[in-house]
Design a protein around this nucleic acid. Structure first.
Lengths: 202, 202
DNA sequence: ACGTCGCCTTAACCTGGGTTAACCAAGGTC
DNA sequence: GACCTTGGTTAACCCAGGTTAAGGCGACGT
């Protein structure tokens, strides 16, 4: 088994027999991605997907007006790809950029479909992945509906504590749907309030 | 076949043999829901799901602060239920309210699981449903990230033209993440602009 | 040591939409 | 007919966050 940590990680989503995993592992090709390099760019075919072995990525959507918004971050163990475009068989509208020197394990979508024929655990995995992605997006929807930017920021760091100091603030802003300037303002406001509170209590 | 229109509707998601559909139909119980009645309330078990035969529903999430936000509307042919809570095996955190006198076809989640054992088309359907829900939520995420309330309103009516005049404006507002007052302002602003534009061109 | 590039901060000003509250029209109900 | 609701509108005021523009500062390459 080349990637036992990965096996363990995926086992949380579906019961994959080790023998199946060992077959699957062989289909993946390791690849390194330089910091700031685009692992996927808009217009590319969405016929591959990957798993992050090391590093952090951001998934960026460039809007018609030229603004960038960040759909998600991906780190060790996460799936990496233009998931929704793959589901729709469309070319990618998403750019994927490495924020650190990274390594990924690349699979061809067609290979996964072949695996699905051989063992139902892969179908179950695909379903779990779809459901998990849905739950994450729904949570995000709810945050946009109910929370202010400041509250969304707080939630973000609760959910992404493991990425602390690994993603630049401007990308966090683009993920929260606010500007770099707005985020900086919120952060410094909170800093001041915390300082005032701890000063007052002493 | 009791519900041929429904069969046709679901066939867009997965290839269901008519014989399977006829077995499934028998498991559903028809139920009427009065206008303004809660078909599901927060705290209820999420062990049933339904299909709308007639009418319109809104899925409401009541936030901690008491504010209401609308997660979705459901009309003829749509699935109706606390989907994400069902996936997580949690009781519903969502209220489902009929906006019109409505009729639904109710299934027990356990019955669907039994069907899945008998024919893989139901597994495929479950997967398609998850993927479709994901795509919708991702689109909504993107709208929150990139669009103003006014632009979201415009998109909303493009996507939901079939619900025109069937949902009250306040619910549209709660769906867009703005207040009733804010929406009214946007609507009247657009009315004025249109009037000015058409007046000028004549 | 020196520019400069990338990322962050701060300040000044502006605006979309929140909040509150008054008001209206259309149905129901007595 | 007098009176509620229920859903929508409008106005006055307020504030979070957008926009623009000007630094700050550490990490570089030379």
């Amino acid at each position: 088994m080349r990637f036992p940590a990965l096996f363990e990680h995926l086992s949380k989503l579906a019961a994959i027999p080790p023998s199946e995993w060992e077959r699957a592992e062989l289909l993946g090709k390791e690849q390194t991605v330089d910091r700031k390099a685009l692992f996927l760019r808009p217009g590319d075919a969405s016929d591959r997907f990957s798993i992050v072995l090391q590093g952090v990525f951001r998934l960026v959507r460039v809007s018609a007006r030229g603004g960038e918004s960040v759909k998600a971050f991906r780190a060790e163990g996460d799936l990496l790809g233009a998931y929704s475009e793959m589901l729709q068989g469309k070319p990618s509208m998403t750019a994927i950029e490495a924020l650190e020197p990274s390594r990924v394990l690349v699979f061809r979508a067609a290979d996964l479909q072949a695996l699905e024929q051989g063992h139902t655990c892969w179908v179950q995995l695909a379903r779990s992945v779809a459901e998990k992605h849905f739950l994450l997006k729904e949570q995000r929807e709810q945050e946009f509906l109910e929370l202010s930017a400041e509250e969304r920021l707080e939630r973000f760091w609760e959910e992404h504590a493991h990425l602390h100091r690994r993603i630049p603030q401007r990308d966090v802003a683009a993920y929260l749907g606010i500007t770099e300037v707005g985020l900086s303002r919120i952060v410094s406001r909170r800093r001041r309030q915390q300082a005032a509170a701890s000063g007052a209590s002493q």
